[in-house]
Computed example of a mutant assay.
Amino acid sequence: MGFSCLLQKMKTKIPRGELWIAGEILKELGLEQTQESLITLSSSIGSDICFLSYTNPIQNLPINSGEMTTLINRADALGLVSGVTVDGPFERTIREHDFWEVIKWFSSDPERLDEQLKKNAELAAIELMAADNAGADVLILCDDIAYNRGLYFSPELFKRILLPLYRRLRNLIKSDKPVGFHSDGNIETIITSLIDEGYSMFSLEPEAMNLLELCRRLPENIVILSGIKAEWLMGPDLEDNEMAAIFRYIDDLKNSCKLILASSCGLSDIRSLKKLQEIYRQLE
């Protein structure tokens, strides 16, 4: 389909897509544990964008195998925009080491922190360039650097330590395709810095940030990949009055920004998938 076509679709409907779909859902639906099954599922539930990854736990893809290109072509044949998510340097570093140990390095061992982040930024760079070359329509750098009240470190440390790495990663992509950013938690203090570096799509956690207020202050070209709260997918079944409030929230968000409807938490089980499908159905 291409991302430009998706932007055109926004004039008549709210596009949809999920960053993460658990393998348990594929199993319960009788689908193979492959990323092609993610494409099949995305198409079957009426998504407009399907997200793939070289390091998806459902199925890892070798960088030089050509498999990503094959999957992107498959998504395109089904009329889906293809997105590829790439874990960022902070995410990779805390996966290798204890979270609190890494946080301490910001003050106790900045040289080791710098070494580890740069090493993992190189790994992210390889995946970003491979995804770009494979023909992905959208690229998303995923680095969980925040919790509900703000960053795990000061905005000043972010700008000095992580932002230069994010700048280099963004600058690797010379085409005009959108490069986005995902983090759990509240990243309001640094989102302008990311926009200034050329990131133009943001997967944000609606429980942690006032998206309506934020969107009114963002440039018009910024796309928000969000709008579905975790409690709607994981909590008890929704009453009619709760569903009406959900649609008012989504409608207000759509009128405040370029919106691709998605959750930040992802789909963890078949129940969350069915609740998502119900929201989709009632939005029609």
Rank of each mutant, 00 (worst) to 15 (best):
G46F: 04
L139V: 02
K159N: 15
A244Q: 15
L141V: 15
K9P: 00
A244R: 14
N73E: 15
D109M: 02
E18Q: 15
L283N: 07
L165G: 07
R160S: 14
G46W: 04
K11I: 02
C257A: 14
K119F: 10
T40W: 07
L276P: 05
I279M: 03
L276A: 03
S42W: 11
G66H: 13
T69H: 12
E36M: 08
G2A: 08
I191H: 05
N148V: 02
S200P: 06
D196R: 14
M68F: 08
I94W: 15
L61W: 12
G79R: 09
L273V: 08
F247L: 09
L283T: 00
V84L: 07
L165P: 09
S226F: 01
L283K: 07
S107Q: 11
K177P: 06
G185F: 01
I161W: 04
L253M: 08
A136F: 00
G198Q: 12
D137K: 02
A125N: 04
E36K: 15
Y280L: 03
P236L: 10
I103Y: 06
C50N: 09
N221G: 00
A130N: 08
E18R: 13
G46Y: 06
I228L: 07
S43V: 01
P219N: 03
M209G: 06
G2D: 12
L233R: 12
L141N: 04
L71F: 12
D269L: 05
L194M: 14
E111V: 11
L163N: 11
L78Y: 08
L273N: 08
E67A: 15
W100E: 06
K104P: 01
R248T: 11
I63K: 12
I222P: 11
M68N: 12
I246S: 12
F202E: 03
Y152G: 05
D240Y: 08
Q35S: 00
A130H: 04
R168M: 05
F3S: 01
E188L: 09
K11H: 05
K274R: 15
P62E: 10
E188Q: 13
L6G: 00
E231S: 14
G30D: 07
K104Q: 13
C5E: 06
T93P: 13
F51Y: 15
E207F: 08
L29Q: 12
D252I: 00
K254M: 01
E115P: 02
D176N: 15
I187N: 10
